[in-house]
Nucleic acid binder design. Sequence first.
DNA 1: TCGTATTTGTACGTATGTATT
DNA 2: AAATACATACGTACAAATACG
Lengths: 246, 246
Amino acid sequence: MKNVIQEKNVKIPLYVTVYETICQWLKDGKYKPGDKLPGENVLAEQFQVSRGTLRQAMLLLQEDGLIGNHQGKGNIVLSNQDLQRNGLEKVGNPIVDFCVEPIDRVVTTIGFQPPTQKHQEVLKLRPSSIVAVIDITYFHQDSPVGFAMVYMPHEFLDKGNVDLEDMDSVYAFYMKLLSSGSLYSDTRLRIVHARERLAEILAIPEGDPLLILEEELYTEYDTPVLSHKMYMGADLYEISLKRKSK
Amino acid sequence: MKNVIQEKNVKIPLYVTVYETICQWLKDGKYKPGDKLPGENVLAEQFQVSRGTLRQAMLLLQEDGLIGNHQGKGNIVLSNQDLQRNGLEKVGNPIVDFCVEPIDRVVTTIGFQPPTQKHQEVLKLRPSSIVAVIDITYFHQDSPVGFAMVYMPHEFLDKGNVDLEDMDSVYAFYMKLLSSGSLYSDTRLRIVHARERLAEILAIPEGDPLLILEEELYTEYDTPVLSHKMYMGADLYEISLKRKSK
DNA sequence: TCGTATTTGTACGTATGTATT
DNA sequence: AAATACATACGTACAAATACG
């Protein structure tokens, strides 16, 4: 299997450059929310591309929630100012992205163990394989705000050439996975109450509520990459997202 | 302005019928997770459509997370039989969709008031307009499990021809809005602690944690439709979603 | 290892349908 | 009613990634 987090190709399709150009227009305020973009034929002419190619760019803009397409009316700019921040529906690291305070320090530890029954299922592992267990505590100004338990097949770390003695590089690998794109997830959100160990780690009273996010990440090939649980302090997190419907 | 929840056109594009046919194939198990679909040229031939049209159907399948597209390899079926249930990232009614117990009764009340400063902003209303305040309590076996406060411009209810004396029809209108499609949202999730009134409504001790979802819904024209807050009992809710990235 | 066939990705062009102005 | 603008659909050609002998 190829390295999951390989770099992307440098070759950029035409419709992507068109998309990026129009994104920049919107960022620069060349067209403001409520404005109508020039007609597709006009734009295609300007960019010297076919209308089909231009429409691929429009599709990307629409998926980003930057424009709305309306037959007979035109492509209208939506209120895009606040779209900078990614919502929960985009893969990233929620425990970092949604803390109301900035995360300024993380403490990472790593251990290894045979897969539990559950991990054999969700990570599709043989009983003879090895699972890396990565515990990460997230701090803001020396106060713990969140805690994550990450379960990853050792195989992935191995193929990623990660120095297992260097916690910074382990954490960097994990973050790179989360932001690598081309991953999708099964995600569950619940409220739990802090028990002994968690209460101690997060320095909160036992029984205090926590937001927990449980998740499995897969490649586009449907290969499990990792499973993790994130515990987020109740008062320190506000999770935002964009919901949509066809 | 046109009625937001108007029925869709009856005319169905070719690529949608192709998409629906292949969806059915997957549901029937004609192709199982891991299988490769026939090549696009073959499928286009079978459906008697051009390859471009067929590729539009493939795009829909991919957006649903049902298949993965891979240059040179093929279109592979993913293991998403369980995608029947919509995740939070799709607009619907979370307070109904994610309760671990089935909701078997709702109690709806309605009142009217001038818009607060905040509603003037988020719903883009004039101070002289009227806001409908709809309170909805959700029950499972006569126990309250969730509570929602909905703020909607009176104008919408009026144009929707809703009988404001008939609570069932008010609730039906609200649910129809949520499932009408063509809406998108700004959504925030947090933990709050039940205060007096909420604790009483949900029949829980004061101070107990609740999951709260605050949201504004907009049409594709960027017109605010409604703003609501949903309070969900801590132990009764598990919210699932599908995260993705390009 | 290398070349060839297969398969999807990109890009172009044209024509017609349908909703809005 | 006519003009405008996006939506759908067809066709062709070549590029790029992968699979296979």
